[in-house]
């Protein structure tokens, strides 16, 4: 737990009373938590529990009905929900990153692997083809994609490679906060294991702060420092990952944990 000790006094992200309804149905309601620099938070629950709605609201893809999402920007803490769209979009392409469950949503399928990785660099002003190429080559290596695939399009890649490419594309500019939506969903079990291993390495090495939504407890066991369990739009339990998984308090968490053990 050496990473927990390095916590600075101010949270990176501070969420208060976040709610989103779809008509009479609850998406998520009254969610509050703090995320500290260098911390990885897992959000678990079955499908329909509101975890993906919550992530979309946090990342600014969906407008919540109420609440605050305060991010420690370089200019001090700011409620991202009240930011102007230009500011929010700037944040999304600099300090934030978003890894989609389906790599097709996060990649430009018609653009080469190198171009995909290079886009964020070019967006922040890099204008040297050679250095963009070098960075892309380096990042392909870090996500275990052969450098000679740099001029291939993602459509020629396997699902696991596409997901690793999406991760490289997001991390190339060193974001301060990464949102991940079921990053291992839709992949074969063996491919999942390799991706998890890779993610764990990157998280450790870069000291990433991340919020990971998943229904897979193995993912959070491996990656998350802290855990939030959601059911019907409510957070029913939160705490340190090991604590929640080894000694679940809420009946729903107990059910979740036991159903995993049965597998």
């Amino acid at each position: 737990m050496s990473r927990i000790e390095k916590i600075t006094p101010a949270p990176l992200l501070s969420v208060r009373n976040l709610s989103k309804r779809y008509g009479s149905r609850i998406g998520c309601t009254d969610v509050s938590f703090d995320l500290w620099p260098g911390e990885v938070l897992g959000i678990v629950g079955e499908s329909g529990s509101g975890k993906s709605t919550l992530l979309s609201c946090l990342a600014g893809h969906l407008a919540p009905d109420g609440g605050e999402v305060v991010f420690a920007t370089v200019n001090g803490p700011q409620d991202t929900l009240r930011m102007s769209e230009p500011d929010r979009r700037r944040l999304a392409r600099t300090d934030w990153a978003f890894v989609h469950q389906n790599p097709r949503d996060g990649l430009r399928m018609g653009v080469t692997a190198g171009g995909n990785v290079g886009e964020r660099l070019m967006a922040v002003g890099t204008r040297n083809y050679g250095s963009i190429r070098d960075a892309a080559t380096d990042w392909l290596g870090r996500v275990e994609i052969d450098a000679n695939r740099i001029d291939d399009r993602p459509s020629a890649f396997s699902g696991g490679m596409q997901q690793r490419l999406q991760i490289a594309r997001n991390l190339v500019t060193g974001p301060r906060l990464v949102f991940m939506d079921e990053p291992t969903g839709g992949l074969d079990v063996s491919v999942q294991a390799r991706l998890l291993d890779l993610l764990r390495g990157l998280v450790r090495e870069m000291g990433l702060s991340a919020i990971i939504v998943t229904h897979d407890l193995a993912v959070v066991r491996l990656l998350a420092d802290r855990l939030m369990v959601m059911k019907s739009g409510h957070v029913v339990e939160q705490g340190l990952t090991d604590q929640v998984l080894d000694d679940p308090q809420h009946p729903y968490t107990q059910l979740l944990v036991s159903s995993v053990l049965q597998v």
């Binding site: 769209e85 230009p86 979009r89 700037r90 392409r93 430009r108 653009v111 080469t112 190198g114 171009g115 290079g118 886009e119 964020r120 070019m122 967006a123 922040v124 204008r127 083809y129 963009i132 190429r133 740099i150 001029d151």
Partner: peptide
Amino acid sequence: RKMHSLEEYGLMHVKLYEDIAR
């Protein structure tokens, strides 16, 4: 129009990058 107002011109360079790569 949003891309112009935010000076989000990364995509334009992606196109040029792709040209050179290809």
